[in-house]
Amino acid sequence: MRAIVHHRPGRGRGRGGPSVGLAVAALLAAASSAGFATGAADPLPRAELVLNGAFDSYPWIWTCDGDVRRSSIPHDHYVSGYPTADSTARCSQRVRVLPNSGYLLNATVRGPFAFVGVTGAAGENASTWSGQGGWNDLSVGVSTGPETTELTVYFHGWYEQAPYDVRRMSFTGPGYEPRPCGEPGGPAPTVTGGPGSPSPPPSPSPTCWRTYIP
């Protein structure tokens, strides 16, 4: 009579053996490490990179050419530009950016031929415009090149056209919120409570610059 022998699964054999278990543990550890490394290299959050984009604080920061005036009504501030045959009444501001990154410009404007845009030394040019008589919102995106660390945000009207108004300029993307440095470029412009002839805003000092707040 033949004896029936029952073999117990030996330790170290079969699909549940220690060699497979160790391999799975190693894979899990590697995945965990990879996830941690990825989290450590997450990009910076989106920040507002324009200073005084609501035109309600000083130093003025914006550099303007031509006839540009700041007006104020209750709970609101805006800038008016008066183009001539020789000027588009343009204002601009330099902003710090990161290479190979995407940014978005948003503006609230009114009046015919109100232009807003962004320009950079590496050919980063993006702009849009409005011809509406009432307040309306404009948006345009721009991507920086591999070595770009600075862009210029601007707004203006058009030669010999009617005045335009800008109530808000916003430029957002990866980076840190800026802060003013240096001294203002002159006394604050006169603020009026309605239409009139306020003094044009002064240009900022060439030494005034924006820096990242770590």
Rank of each mutant, 00 (worst) to 15 (best):
80 S>H: 09
83 P>L: 12
126 A>Y: 01
140 V>H: 05
138 L>K: 01
95 V>T: 05
81 G>H: 15
177 E>C: 03
170 S>I: 09
126 A>C: 03
140 V>T: 11
89 A>Q: 00
111 G>S: 07
165 D>I: 01
158 W>T: 02
157 G>S: 03
80 S>F: 10
152 T>R: 01
140 V>L: 02
120 G>C: 09
91 C>W: 13
93 Q>S: 07
139 S>W: 13
115 F>R: 08
91 C>L: 08
159 Y>P: 05
93 Q>C: 08
85 A>K: 04
73 I>M: 08
83 P>C: 11
104 L>F: 13
149 T>Q: 08
160 E>R: 07
79 V>Y: 03
146 P>V: 07
103 Y>V: 02
172 T>K: 08
119 T>K: 06
105 L>M: 01
127 S>I: 04
84 T>F: 15
84 T>S: 15
142 V>P: 07
120 G>K: 07
70 R>L: 14
160 E>C: 04
156 H>K: 11
98 L>S: 03
98 L>C: 04
81 G>K: 13
123 G>E: 08
159 Y>V: 09
92 S>T: 01
112 P>Y: 09
179 R>I: 14
178 P>T: 07
88 T>Q: 06
174 P>R: 05
161 Q>D: 13
70 R>P: 14
134 G>H: 10
105 L>H: 00
98 L>H: 03
64 C>S: 10
106 N>Q: 14
154 Y>N: 07
135 W>F: 11
104 L>S: 12
82 Y>G: 04
